[in-house]
């Protein structure tokens, strides 16, 4: 009964949006999905109070609309958005005054995946085969990958397979398509479910920025502190996973029980998510101007962007620095204390 009551109360809070604490600044963050282990830095930061410490609270806006997130930044409904590199470059090329402030999933680039049981081990072998696209937007990923091996789109047949979990999983398992172009999070759940997936992504594709956090230039002026606080809290949450994955697991389990109905699945899913989320650069979320430079010719070639833009026009390294400005030892101590109290 108490569980029901708290659950109902939680529902009420969710329904009311975020009116809970009046003195906290609300940061509206638009991302593709709801709270999930996929965004564990967010749920860890919330559970350990990192966002609160920064004087902010996160209003997560999960959106699966075909309306680009950039529009929500422009019309002020969102303060910060999770964008992929193509979205960033398209928006910048279209004249949107956009600032990339953080690279969220550096190792979660787009890629080409095949079933673990497939004979195909290189994009080269895809000639004459059917290639699935998770969504229409993954077409460019495929084009660049094929181009790297001297193939063109005409050498393969493409079909959009959609994002719905079982459909994609069945496509992998039954090999109804020879390979699938998509991005890391797309096959997170499938792998965790024990369906083997292997990646044949050529370097030309994998060597590019993954998901980034971007803001409108104006937001940085008005709400700069809140954005920096948000990124710092995110970094701390990310950092926790590097030394205490068991704590992250416990937090994720409490926050999103739906992903832990099968504990084995939950664990697998989280581990994959940690791999995708934790930064490979020394600074958490560090920006890499060279990669941003090098991916543009390919994108232009396939008509994704009309013109190339200088990375300095939209990369804003300031916030990353601020995001890394925290005492790691202190975080470690806090986590230990939390572990003692809750586990």
């Amino acid at each position: 009964m108490t569980r029901f009551m708290t659950a109902t109360a939680l529902g009420a809070i969710l329904a009311a949006g975020s009116v809970a604490a009046q003195d906290l600044t609300t940061v509206n963050a638009v991302m593709p999905k709801q709270r999930s282990a996929n965004y564990f830095p967010l749920i860890v930061g919330e559970a350990l109070g990192y966002f609160e410490e920064e004087g902010i609270e996160v209003n997560l806006l999960p959106s699966d609309t075909p309306i680009p997130f950039v529009n929500f930044l422009r019309n002020g409904q969102a303060d910060i958005a999770m964008l992929d590199s193509a979205e960033v470059l398209q928006a910048v090329a279209a004249g949107v005054d956009l600032r990339v402030v953080y690279e969220v999933m550096q190792t979660a680039p787009d890629g080409i995946a095949v079933s673990g049981e497939s004979d195909i081990s290189d994009v080269e072998q895809l000639r004459g085969e059917t290639v699935g696209l998770v969504s229409d937007r993954d077409r460019v990923t495929m084009q660049i990958a094929l181009d790297a091996r001297g193939l063109t789109e005409d050498d393969v047949t493409t079909v959009v397979v959609g994002e719905a979990g079982p459909t994609l999983a069945a496509a992998f398992r039954d090999q109804t398509v020879a390979a699938i172009a998509g991005s890391g999070p797309d096959w997170l759940a499938i792998q965790a479910n024990g369906i083997p997936v292997s990646l044949i992504t050529p370097e030309e594709v994998s060597n590019k920025p993954g998901n980034t956090f971007a803001v409108a230039a104006g937001t940085l002026e008005e709400k700069g502190d809140a954005i920096e606080g948000y990124l710092r809290a995110w970094s701390k949450g990310m950092y926790v996973a590097t030394f205490a994955p068991d704590v992250v697991a416990k937090i994720a389990q409490d926050a999103v029980p739906e992903e832990w109905e099968d504990p084995e699945f939950g664990q697998q899913y989280l581990e994959n998510a940690i791999r995708l989320n934790v930064s490979v650069t020394d600074t958490l979320g560090g920006l890499n101007a060279d990669t941003w430079e090098s991916i543009q010719p390919g994108m232009q070639k396939f008509g994704l962007i009309e013109k190339q833009v200088a990375p300095s026009d939209f990369l804003e390294p300031g916030p990353v620095e601020a995001a890394n400005d925290f005492d790691r030892a202190e975080v470690e101590q806090e986590v230990e204390a939390w572990r003692d109290a809750n586990m």
Binding site: Q34, L61, D64, A169, E258
Partner: peptide
Amino acid sequence: EFIASNAGLGVLITQYTGTLNMSS
């Protein structure tokens, strides 16, 4: 809820199908 929501049965369905938890 499919399009944009933090809660609701639509979200729960997306979550469960996304994690291939078909019975739920």
